[in-house]
């Protein structure tokens, strides 16, 4: 759990406006050409003055994807042009770091454009801390989504004009499984699914999966079925058990659809079901062949087995007609 002081300190900054950050240079053709070259953007409205004159823009415009580029500090960190604010719009992250939330990952970048930016315009932006989420547990770790909005303007003698906005969201977190930076590899290894921890109590289940059997633990004293596997019967406290093979016919008891953050190698959206077997016990498993808009509590399902990464066989459930 997060320290309540952390959230109240962080939330106290929400709504705060941070001063202007100016562009070093006016919007200019050389930077546009360099950007278009490397991106493979060949639209002449950015680089060919004669073509641009004949368009609705009546002259060269800057690529919309460059909106943030104009106000970047460049080689030297925090080296912003004279007149720029020396406030730090990311100060909220420092509060989180002081509480041990050291990792940062950018999750959303949402550009909206009020109008195209034209050659020769001089831009600046101001920043507002838009929101700090409650503490969230994700596959990456536990932490906070922090959203900033940068409003971009073009300087005009007649009054500065808004040209567009950037909503930028980062996740500031403690990693779920903090590891020393992994061994260095020459090429990116394709990530594999994490393997379950297998104990003497659970080994039968995973070995059953490898044989295409969905095995459920049964108390041999009172015949009560139980899942997840455990050493003792919850009804009669007997330590004696065997297994029965479930039919694989089941109903959807509840479900969740994982959207974000996307963690390799899983596919997203990733639907996960709490599944009630016809034998009466419930288990959690992935859903396949489902349209998430169509998922219905009570929907009939049938088990099937899929092998991942050549090393792990999991029961998955697919909708079937009732």
């Amino acid at each position: 759990m997060a320290d309540p002081q952390l959230l109240s300190d962080a939330r106290a900054l929400v709504g705060r406006q941070y001063g202007r950050v100016y562009a070093w240079d006016e919007v200019n053709a050389p930077m546009v050409r360099q950007w278009c070259e490397i991106m493979g953007v060949d639209n002449p409205v950015y680089t060919d003055p004669a073509f641009a004159l004949g368009t609705r823009h009546e002259g060269l415009i800057a690529p919309p994807g460059m909106l943030q580029v104009w106000t970047m500090e460049g080689l030297h960190a925090n080296n912003y042009p004279p007149g720029s604010t020396d406030e730090n719009p990311y100060e909220v992250l420092k509060i989180m770091e002081a509480h041990g939330y050291l990792s940062t990952v950018a999750v959303n970048s949402e550009l909206t454009f009020t109008r195209p930016v034209r050659m020769g315009e001089k831009l600046y932006y101001t920043t507002r801390l838009d929101s700090v989420s409650d503490e969230k547990a994700t596959a990456l770790g536990t932490g906070f989504f922090v959203t900033l909005v940068m409003s971009h303007f073009a300087e005009k003698a007649s009054g500065d004009e808004p040209v567009g906005e950037l909503l930028f969201r980062v996740f500031k977190f403690r990693p779920a499984n903090a590891q020393a930076p992994a061994k260095v590899e020459a090429a990116p290894a394709k990530p594999k699914r994490p393997l379950p921890g297998v104990s003497d109590d659970t080994r039968f289940f995973w070995e059953g999966c490898e044989k295409g059997q969905l095995l459920i633990q049964r108390c041999t004293a009172c015949q009560t079925l139980r899942h997840p596997p455990a050493p003792v019967c919850i009804e009669c406290h007997s330590f004696d058990w065997d297994t029965v093979q479930a039919s694989g016919r089941a109903a959807l008891y509840s479900f969740v659809v994982m959207h974000y953050p996307e963690v390799p190698p899983f596919d997203y959206p990733n639907p996960i079901g709490l599944i009630e077997l016809e034998e009466g016990v419930r288990l959690i498993a992935g859903l396949v062949g489902v349209d998430r808009e169509q998922l219905q509590i009570g929907q009939r399902l049938q088990v099937e087995f899929q092998t991942f990464d050549d090393q792990q066989t999991l029961p998955m459930f697919r909708p079937v007609d009732a």
Binding site: G40, V41, T55, H57, P64, N108, S109, L111, T112, F113
Partner: peptide, 23 residues
């Protein structure tokens, strides 16, 4: 931008470009 622009053509005017980042 390039992916969309190559399909839409040179005079398509961008209103928004909203992305989520993954791998």
């Amino acid at each position: 931008q390039r992916f969309v622009e190559q399909w839409a053509g040179p005079e398509a005017v961008f209103r928004s470009l909203k992305i989520k980042l993954g791998a």
